[in-house]
Write a protein that binds this DNA or RNA. Structure first.
Lengths: 190, 190
DNA sequence: GACAAATTAGGACAATTGTCCTAATTATTG
DNA sequence: CAATAATTAGGACAATTGTCCTAATTTGTC
């Protein structure tokens, strides 16, 4: 007997709308009509719009952690795991093409709004950063693992931004190939 | 006898506010109070908010072209000119740290708003792209100049996004150093 | 089936939004 | 100085915003 609670539905819908239309530009009316409830009903579940945002970020963090654990399970080697990270550029290609990276764009929007959740939004980046660092360490790059991790993060962000702007499929394919061959230079084993 | 017209003042102010607070989140009241004029006065100079945006983008394009021409004049070699491009990361470090890249963030916001000016915003990226391509061609990279140009663009965008998120000065410095030594590998002369 | 708690709908609210109109003021021109 | 044009201020406008309140409905418990 599975019943998705209204609260969960709101979070899931807000998550999608915040990504596709931006946090500030998404209104309660938008979320309400997409969930299929009345506007006044929100305040039984959330104190404010910022409260929904906090729940959405929490939701994203949880999903990110789960995804990282899956990669940890599925891929045998550190290098294979880092390639799992790069693969999300292909897996989410269509969405990225249209809306960019959910983490990067939200973090920047928070910064511009001077929103209280700015650091919280950036902490999703940190999850990837620490996880990538761990993989580089296990891959034999103990002395500069965090530098390499940030570089992968940065490289993928740049790729996404330019792909979102120009929508050039060949560019995306080519950058991914370059990241992977760079990765082969950094981690020799496997 | 220099007199900055109200129109120019509006464009300049809107440009800054669109960058720092985002286009959607910037209201006429914000621009008006910053310029020092009344809200109703806008419609004598601009038909709509989208009209101001178009003027701001036009203004940015003009400034970008002027900047590229200056680099063309000031730097002797193609490599030196590309380094001028990279140097804006340092020159605008404080602003980037707080608000990200004006081109990248506006382009993405336009995409999310499904705004009519989406392509126009992205065209500022194109200015850099074609200019960088030209420099790589002149630097002896005729067969993959556009690929290298996009790579520089992408790399700088990623650096900016991560710098804006983590605000780690060492990271910025390190990425810039890496871009420059990568550049030294691509263009041997000078 | 009765009762309390949880959930919901609907509307009111003050504030803000982009837009538009009109009247007053300032500049320009003859 | 007179007359025309350009510019400005101020307010009206309908729509939308986030927030809050109340009454109705559903759900769960005994």
């Amino acid at each position: 007997m599975f019943k998705i609670s209204t609260r969960e539905k709101i979070i899931k819908t807000a998550d999608e709308l915040f990504y596709k239309n931006g946090f500030d530009h998404t209104s309660f009316a938008d979320v309400a009509s997409n969930v299929g409830i009345s506007r006044g009903n929100f305040y039984h579940h959330f104190k404010s719009k910022d409260d929904i945002l906090a729940a959405v970020i929490e939701h994203r963090k949880k999903n990110t952690k789960k995804m990282l654990e899956e990669w940890e399970r599925d891929a045998r080697s550190p290098k294979g795991r880092i390639k799992c990270y790069i693969d999300i550029l292909i897996k989410n290609q269509t969405l990225i093409k249209e809306f960019g990276c959910p983490v990067g764009t939200l973090t920047n929007e928070m910064a511009k709004l001077k929103h209280a959740s700015t650091e919280d939004a950036a902490s999703i980046f940190s999850l990837f950063k620490y996880w990538l660092t761990e993989q580089f360490e296990k891959g034999g790059c103990q002395n500069n693992a965090d530098r390499l991790a940030l570089h992968v993060l940065s490289w993928s962000q740049g790729t996404v931004t330019i792909y979102n702007a120009f929508k050039d499929d060949d560019f995306l394919k080519n950058e991914i190939r370059q990241i992977e061959s760079w990765l082969d230079l950094q981690i020799k084993e496997n």
